[in-house]
Design a protein around this nucleic acid. Structure first.
Lengths: 159, 159
DNA sequence: GCTGGGGCTTCCCACCATGGGAAGGTCAAG
DNA sequence: CTTGACCTTCCCATGGTGGGAAGCCCCAGC
């Protein structure tokens, strides 16, 4: 069996979290310092792998490292209230939905513009025209135009 | 009129791009070096503001700086083919839709889990259980589980 | 025993787009 | 001339992640 003490490389393979990131999580105290061999090698138990997998899953669900810090706190707390977990999860869902709305707005705007672009070898293109000077949306005469920017949430790398 | 030569602060206000970012765009050659006064102050013309606004809108549509570099190239090219602009735009739409799909998957998974969490003062919580040991989706017995990570696109800050 | 290759350690660098802030020069109004 | 708002450059931080160098460790094969 692949059971018991492993080096960081094995832990990475077993958990789906890269060795680099495991060290980073340790540095930033997301996870406790790993045990070490006499030579200084990090050693991971099955329990540790369990925790790393937890982290990996939470990342896959788009939680930030700070979010995971809170999740881990609740995970470890046997006296937690599931209400707290639920609140955390739903707050994250709200963030995700917000971001989705923003991206959807961008995509549909751009799609509309692209649909009206001939896409031939002539230079005239409503996409560029719109970027140059946005058409006032028909329902919203240029009145008290809000100057807001999208608002950050999330970017994830492939692994 | 607010027409003619402006300092970087005015240009920032007029374009919606912060002074910091204008300098950054210049450093990275996204825009040509601004003219300077004898004292070294950057000076911006209405043309420059026009370009900065173009950049700002492209950012608002989620284009990366590299994407904008391409857009600007086409914008300046009087012999461009609108097909190239359209291709760029649709490629970006595809990226956006891809990201939306990923976020939507996360959100709906999390929402489902949250719905089955009592959200009371007891500790048991299916959200944590799922993070601990993901339930095999009923339609997909644990066979050749793909080990993919989300895949990066986009993060935007509020301004 | 010695050697080679793969693994581990730490440390620094890069990405992307953005903001913060320090140290110092400039300009216009009072 | 002073004051305060503005400008300049330069460095640092963010969040996660990867790349890579320099140096140590461990095991298998000879």
């Amino acid at each position: 069996m692949t059971t018991g003490a492993m080096n960081i490389g094995d832990a990475a393979r077993a958990s789906g979290v890269s060795a680099k990131m495991i060290r980073y999580y340790e540095d930033t105290a997301l996870i406790p310092p790993a045990a070490r061999t006499a030579a200084g090698y990090r050693v991971y138990s099955d329990q540790d792998i369990h925790m790393l997998r937890f982290i990996r899953r939470a990342r896959d669900l788009g939680f930030s490292v700070e979010g995971i810090r809170e999740l881990l706190g609740l995970w470890r707390d046997r006296d937690r209230h599931s209400a707290d977990v639920k609140r955390l999860a739903l707050a994250h869902v709200a963030e995700l939905r917000q971001k989705i709305r923003e991206l959807e707005d961008m995509a549909s705007t751009l799609e509309t513009l692209a649909a009206s672009c001939h896409g031939n070898d002539r230079p005239d293109c409503p996409i560029l025209s719109e970027l140059e000077a946005p058409a006032a949306p028909p329902t919203t005469p240029p009145h008290v135009r809000s100057g807001k920017r999208p608002g950050a949430v999330l970017k994830r790398k492939a692994g």
